[in-house]
């Protein structure tokens, strides 16, 4: 990825530009065709956004099979409701649907305490959350993998509602309004939850010297 560290005060949308390019003219044209019932155009949108939507549901739910189900359901619902899309960021609209699906699953889990995130954490089928990378050196790749695994573990220590906000904002690059739209929260609540989630992650990272060093190296490198 080519993003550079976000200097204080730099707009998030500019810093995490990878998520912003989805709302370009191509996407708008595909969305318009999909609204007319063009399934092929909609599936082009699916291909474009499925990694992000799956990543969101996977991080919210913590295990692959429920994430797959939620992702598929999110795309089906999006297709069913294309006519209700009123413009704006299609990606954040899609993430709203996906987050709702994942939240529904989390509520169902809450009613079935036996199936928890702890269980998902121990899931041997839990996939490696590594991104498809460039071709780094084996040493660098091993370091990154270790750091990412630790970060993912730290993320899973967060309460569900905090994790959702930090995933949408810091991993998927949605701005506060988009996060508020996706989660149905007030902007002030998004702001406070994100701040608390970051503070908690910072504590977790500081408790782990190796992770702290890895995060610092990564931050400087990026």
């Amino acid at each position: 990825m080519s993003t550079s560290p976000r200097p204080p005060g730099t707009p998030q949308s500019a810093a995490q530009s990878s998520g912003r390019h989805a709302s370009d003219e191509v996407v708008e044209a595909l969305v318009e065709r999909a609204r007319q019932g063009d399934l092929q155009a909609f599936n082009s949108l699916v291909a474009r956004f499925q990694d992000g939507v799956y990543g969101l549901t996977l991080r919210m739910l913590g295990s692959p099979q429920p994430a797959e189900d939620a992702t598929q359901e999110a795309f089906i619902r999006a297709w069913q409701r294309m006519e209700t899309f009123r413009g704006g960021s299609f990606r954040s609209w899609l993430f709203t649907i996906a987050a709702n699906q994942a939240r529904d699953e989390l509520r169902r889990r809450a009613r079935r305490p036996a199936q928890s995130l702890d269980q998902a954490r121990d899931d041997p089928d839990r996939p490696d959350l590594d991104p498809p990378g460039d071709e780094p050196s084996p040493e660098t790749e091993a370091e990154r993998q270790e750091m990412r695994a630790a970060l993912e573990a730290a993320l899973r220590t967060l309460p569900d509602d905090w994790r959702e906000v930090v995933v949408l904002s810091d991993i998927h690059g949605l701005d506060y309004r988009e996060v508020a739209q996706a989660t149905g929260l007030q902007l002030g609540t998004v702001k406070s939850r994100l701040s608390r989630a970051r503070a908690r992650l910072r504590e977790v990272i500081q408790d782990s010297r190796e992770l702290s060093e890895a995060v610092e190296r990564l931050g400087v490198r990026r």
Binding site: M1, T3, P5, R6, P7, P8, A15, Q16, S18, G19, G52, G55, L129, P131, R144, M147, R148, L151, E152, L155, V166, D170, I171, H172, G173, R198, L201, R202, I205, A214, V215, E216, L218, G219, V220, R222
Partner: peptide, 11 residues
């Protein structure tokens, strides 16, 4: 800043 950069690298 380091934290958000590291989190962004997860995508």
């Amino acid at each position: 800043q380091h934290l958000t950069s590291a989190l962004a690298s997860l995508e």
